[in-house]
Amino acid sequence: MAKDLPVVPSAPPGTMALKPVAAAWRERHPQIIEGRCNACGECLYFCPEGALKLKETEKGKELEINLDFCKGCGICAHECQRQALRMVAEYTGPQGLLG
């Protein structure tokens, strides 16, 4: 029996977001430096992954980082004019043979 497939080879919308795989490539990730981010939202335009969002909180807008999507390129930290993000290594201990 052949697999049940759509007649026109195709994929339903947005389905890659459901099970992101490429975040596993990440070697470092952004971290918000307490008190520096003013939630200007500029970095949202520069993130290739859609990993950054502004969420509404009681204190107003706040930057949120979705590590399911983030591959750790560091563009957000590099571009931030307030230097409100730093990139931190994904792993703390040695990597390699024993990793």
Binding site: K19, P20, A22, G50, C73, I75
Partner: peptide, 11 residues
């Protein structure tokens, strides 16, 4: 165009 795509880091 959502996250979860397989472009290179920093694409």
């Amino acid at each position: 165009f959502t996250g979860g795509h397989v472009g290179c880091r920093g694409c």
